[in-house]
Design a protein around this nucleic acid. Structure first.
Lengths: 165, 165
DNA sequence: CACTCGTTTCACAACTTCGTGAAGCTCGTA
DNA sequence: TACGAGCTTCACGAAGTTGTGAAACGAGTG
């Protein structure tokens, strides 16, 4: 038997609710957030729809809607064992947190709207110059995000080695 | 007369609504978002409460609530000209966008909750190790945020020079 | 081909958020 | 001290979200 059965289910459940709550505060819809938190607490990173419904005390409908969200944002993938009708959801290997920081599409949109603003106000006005600088900030951040994630992966390698030693 | 009167007010208003909408999507409450956008379009970076109410077609009550939000998050400051009862709100010099990226308090909270999770599950379990790595990610990002903003300020200096030349 | 398990869809209800109107409060002015 | 301009507070109502139950759907199985 794995250590799983020994776990303090109360403490784990509390973690799920707390962490799910934080993610919800950050903007992740509540049910997807709770499901993600629940998946994090499993050794396998996998849960069936029924297990999710049971763990979180929510309806199958809620599970359906939430996992649809999680799959479209590429945080979990849906699997199905041959010969079974049960869906199994798996966290895509430990990259979900990177998704948290990726706001690419949003940054592009911001750039566009700010550019409109600069045009409308005129780049030679105080206000136009301010928007121009703001746009430059988001462009800078957009560019840095990529290298930042690269650096994280490097850091992660070293960190994993140190931990295993 | 400044160029302000020549401005295409329709286009400016459209910018305010669009950009305010984006900020709202990112999590900024709607009214504060619109007010911030409106302030951005002014050369002085200042607006009176009455001007805000008029520009955005909102009630004084809405202005009151929204500016309270903006002042508590340090994005605008309240001023009052001696001998007047009108409040004037000013954007704190072009650092508002940095605030957008500062999630310090949230990152600390995440660290705490993840630490609880690691303890509950045991660092020697698969799930515990996963949470441990997640925690390391947020710690890394937390640390990088500071240096990232420093680099932005450096970039900003150069950029401002180039633009003025 | 009918049966059944599991998932999805849909309309509704509960909850939450948010802006308004109106009354209240504060402070400068006469 | 009384007045009034302007900001704030508060309770209500409108609007949007979100999870539920029930029914529909689809895919294996006997």
């Amino acid at each position: 038997m794995t250590r799983a059965t020994e776990r303090d289910t109360q403490a784990v459940s509390q973690f799920v609710e707390r962490f799910g709550g934080i993610l919800a505060d950050v903007g992740v819809p509540r049910m997807p957030a709770r499901i993600l938190a629940a998946l994090l607490t499993t050794d396998s990173g996998r849960l069936t729809a029924a297990e999710i419904a049971d763990l979180l005390q929510i309806s199958p409908a809620a599970v359906s809607g939430a996992v649809r969200y999680l799959t479209t944002v590429q945080i979990v993938s849906r699997e199905r064992e041959p010969g079974s009708r049960r869906d199994v959801f798996r966290m895509r290997d430990n990259v979900w947190y990177e998704t948290t920081f990726r706001k690419d599409q949003m940054l592009v949109l911001i750039d566009e709207v700010l550019s409109e603003g600069v045009d409308s106000l005129g780049a030679d006005t105080e206000a136009g110059a301010r928007l121009d600088e703001t746009r430059e900030f988001f462009r800078f951040m957009h560019a840095e995000m990529g290298t930042l994630l690269d650096r994280w992966r490097g850091h992660r390698e070293k960190w994993l080695e140190e931990r295993s030693s």
